[in-house]
């Protein structure tokens, strides 16, 4: 250790493309405990590039935990060992000198690896296209309080809408199930009056697309909730199940068209 910096051994997943086999590569870094996990990877990449070596490919955007772009599995846990934060908010002070850190991409059939630690998460977009919206003509600006929404309902809906779509739920789930994500998106509309007209069609469509994309089923391990950077509750999954069964019983449509 020098000037408070810590030495770490990194085992990082390297994979040159979707159809290539990957393997772990070993790196050693000396990093400030105040650095974030992504800054540590930046430093590593600067160092690799200065030596003419290929940098480690990883994704990031806002680096303040609101965009959901950065997602790494650190020592077996999506977004690392600290609850309710994204990878970019994880700081190296949470690791000890001489620790070995395993860094892997999110692993799921529906999230193929693009390169190294980057995975393609457009499966989530496809689920959103199927019903993650309210199709109404907005018209003019409505009068204030024209639609009454209790504070608790608005807050509950907002809690569900806090999902940043990072995919940590899929990564954490032993079945690579997307239930927490889909249920959060279903719930944010199901709780508000604006979402009611399409409530039961929406849940059927989104679940159908989710299934078609090859995500697993739910075993109710609640690992998703534990690893979610936004603390999305599994009660949303219960709501989705409820809405889905009600939809199946009540809906007059014999086929779900997406």
């Amino acid at each position: 250790m020098s000037d408070g910096r810590i030495n770490l051994k990194l085992k990082i997943w390297k994979q040159s493309g979707p159809n290539f086999p990957g393997s772990f590569a070993d790196f050693e870094v000396q990093v400030s405990p105040d650095a974030s996990f992504l800054e540590m990877l930046d430093e590593l990449n600067n160092d690799l590039e200065s030596k003419g070596l290929e940098p480690v490919a990883f994704e990031s955007d806002c680096r303040e935990g609101i965009c959901g772009t950065c997602g790494l599995v650190i020592n077996g846990q999506p977004h690392g060992p600290i609850p309710k934060i994204a990878t970019c908010q994880l700081h190296m002070r949470n690791f000890k000198d001489e620790d070995t850190i395993w860094v892997e991409p999110f692993r799921a059939k529906a999230f193929p690896v693009v390169k190294d630690l980057i995975v393609k998460r457009s499966a989530f977009d496809k689920i959103m296209y199927a019903g993650g919206f309210v199709s109404v003509n907005t018209g003019g600006v409505p009068d204030a309080n024209a639609i009454l929404i209790p504070k608790e309902k608005a807050a509950e809906s907002f809690d569900a809408a806090a999902c940043i779509g990072c995919g940590a739920c899929v990564a954490a789930c032993k079945n690579a199930s997307a239930m927490l994500f889909v249920s959060a998106k279903v719930s944010q509309f199901a709780l508000l009056p604006q979402g009611q007209p399409e409530r039961y069609e929406r849940v059927q469509k989104m679940v159908k697309v989710m299934d078609d994309l090859g995500f697993g089923s739910c075993t109710n391990t609640y690992a998703c909730e534990a690893e979610c950077p936004k603390g999305i509750s599994v009660r949303n999954i219960a709501r989705m199940n409820r809405d889905y069964f009600v939809a199946k019983v009540k809906s007059a449509n014999l086929e779900v068209e997406v």
Partner: peptide, 9 residues
């Protein structure tokens, strides 16, 4: 490679 499931379930 690292099974972290004991930490979240």
């Amino acid at each position: 490679a690292v099974n972290g499931s004991s930490k979240n379930a």
